[in-house]
Design a protein around this nucleic acid. Structure first.
Lengths: 108, 108
DNA sequence: CTCATATGCAACTATATGGTTGCATGTCAA
DNA sequence: TTGACATGCAACCATATAGTTGCATATGAG
């Protein structure tokens, strides 16, 4: 889980996901062509995305093809982030009460 | 936006959000007591969360109180992550087609 | 077979990051 | 006023991270 956030924290890696979103199943060389860094650097990023389960790979001959992982990217993120959604209204209430401590509330 | 992912990438910072989820509006010292690091380190983490707009602060006398940001944590994450959700089925299809290149598909 | 292409592996470098300590500043309480 | 408490600021350190280059290995094409 933390791997996912770590993986998404890097702009280059988010770009790579974008690139796969635009065209799925690209090889390493293909992806490296569109990135402003060496092929090896791209390979490292893809390895991180793969180990975070955001990308799956499949070999076709000497090419390694990359796919957005069918295991949904958002699911794990949403699960973690979701509980904070529930707290949203309460948090807002607490915050405003704090900010307006000296103000008297009128009933509508 | 990238700030959000960066901020969430660190386990300590996610713990701090958890702590605020458990009890909103804690002071720096309070939060530092429950973390296995110095107050200054916690202050840095909270500053990062604040600049990523995940946490808001309000001064009460000499105490700096921290609140889960009423601007929803999940919204920004979900917006980015959401488009990948749309691609999910297609990605799965592409992937399976690739994996099963040599297999013939039968119509049901 | 031979060569070009596609990737992997390893060593190395610079900078970012997470942590520390020490001291300065500001606010409440006696 | 004086002192204790809460926070901020700055320097410093160790490690992680993102990138590089060079070379090795594997596969497809002629």
């Amino acid at each position: 889980m933390s791997d996912v956030f770590r993986a998404l924290a890097d702009e280059s890696r988010r770009s790579l996901l974008d690139a796969l979103f635009a065209r799925n199943g690209q090889s390493l060389s293909e992806m490296a062509e569109n990135m402003p860094m060496s092929r090896q650097a791209v390979a490292k990023h893809l390895a991180i995305l793969e180990s975070a389960n955001l990308v799956s790979t499949a070999w076709r001959g000497r090419e390694k093809l990359h796919y957005l992982n069918p295991v949904p990217i958002g699911e794990i993120v949403r699960r973690w982030v979701g509980k904070f959604e529930d707290a949203r209204v309460d948090a807002l209430t607490d915050f405003k009460e704090q900010m307006e401590t000296s103000k008297e509330k009128r009933r509508a």
